[in-house]
Amino acid sequence: MARNQPNSLAVGGLAALAAGLGVGRFVYTPILPGMMADLGLTGGQAGLIASANFVGYLAGALAAALPIPGSRRLVLAACLGVSCLTTLAMAGLSDFWAMMAVRFIGGFASAGVLVLASGLVLERSAARGDKRAPGILFAGVGVGIALSALLVLIVEQAGLDWRTDWLLTGLVSILLAGMAVAKIDEEPPRQAARQPAKARFSGGLAPLVLAYGLFGLGYVVTATFLVAIIRADPKLWAIEPYTWFLVGASAAFSVTLWLVIAARQGTLVAFAAACIIEAIGVGASAAVATEAGMLLAAVLLGGTFMGITALGLVAARERISGNPQRLLAVMTVAFSVGQIVGPSAAGHLHDVTGDFTLASYGAAGALVLAALFALLAQGLSRPAAKV
């Protein structure tokens, strides 16, 4: 095989996560304030639309845990196609229930993209000894977030509305999806047949999965409502156009950094440290309602949440022999359960209290608990495979 093939595969994974998650999942955050203003959505309704996406994500993760006949690459391509179409479809919707349905379908597709793309890249790069691939792969979400933030800013400065946001980002996601399918080549023949019939896990599964679920709950409140929090405070309006881009840019560069830390300190020790740092950022979004506080929250959120996502999946991959697809799906299920609870609860707390302060403090607490369970998992297990 050519020397550059593993990196080509990782670049394909980057493009897949940029399309299916960076745009498909997270573009809702910068578009949300315009939707709320134009459609008269309450915080509770906005949270329910976000939660519908995460319920779909849960369903997609459960489906991804099932054996996939034939080529995983083709199924990944189908998931990418559905994600792109649902992003485009949001431009034509005004009905609350229709938006929930479309975001549910989009969430289903996003989970398939994450599980399949990360499974293919992590599994095959580990076999080839490519240690750079995870950093390249998971940078895709940050790249997608930063790119979509720039597109939303361009649309806003052009005086166009939130429907144009969905159309433009949907078209860009199609380009990214095409790049992903072109870069992720077909799996080697009979590869699946050579793998053990049953994957073996080395121990510490329960606290690892629980830590990942608590992380999903802890990050999602700020990740969903950060721009809306800023939009609600006139003294913060000056930084609104740049905050979500800062989240994405920080995320894109953070994954490799956290993987380097993990290589020196241990994957789950790095996971725990990142959760504590993110908890500080989430708490800052509520406690320090200034431009500096919000920019700090953006950097700490972006600088950790994709690193934690990567570290959790890499930790699972380190602790299993054989095909990691089912365990990656279980991790994604736990993550998505936390995401389902977070936006809906935060939205309703906003409607009761008038802001996201209480929800943000609760999210920070969940991240601290995630760190503690990650350290417990570290104590109960030993890596079974190296990534």
Rank of each mutant, 00 (worst) to 15 (best):
P33N: 05
A18D: 06
V75A: 14
Q339I: 08
V330S: 06
F108V: 15
F108M: 15
A263Q: 14
M179Q: 14
R103F: 00
L208W: 08
K198M: 07
A52D: 06
L295H: 14
A127Q: 12
A359C: 07
D185F: 01
G70L: 13
F253E: 00
Q45K: 08
I280D: 07
L9M: 15
A16V: 11
G281Q: 10
S285T: 12
S71V: 06
L301Y: 09
A374S: 09
L62Q: 07
T353E: 11
V152R: 04
T267S: 10
A206I: 12
P30H: 04
L21P: 06
P189T: 09
Q339R: 11
T332E: 00
L168W: 09
V55E: 03
I31Y: 01
L153H: 12
M99G: 03
I136P: 01
G204L: 06
M1E: 13
T86I: 05
A270R: 09
S51N: 03
S148T: 14
G303P: 12
L150R: 13
L236R: 10
A192R: 15
V75I: 12
E156I: 00
M331C: 12
A371T: 06
S8A: 15
L48H: 11
Y28E: 12
M1R: 13
A63H: 01
D161L: 11
N53D: 01
L311D: 08
C84A: 15
L66W: 14
G135S: 12
A272W: 01
Q5P: 00
P6W: 07
R319D: 01
P33R: 05
A10E: 05
I340F: 00
A77D: 07
I68D: 03
G22F: 09
S344V: 13
L375S: 05
T86R: 05
V282T: 11
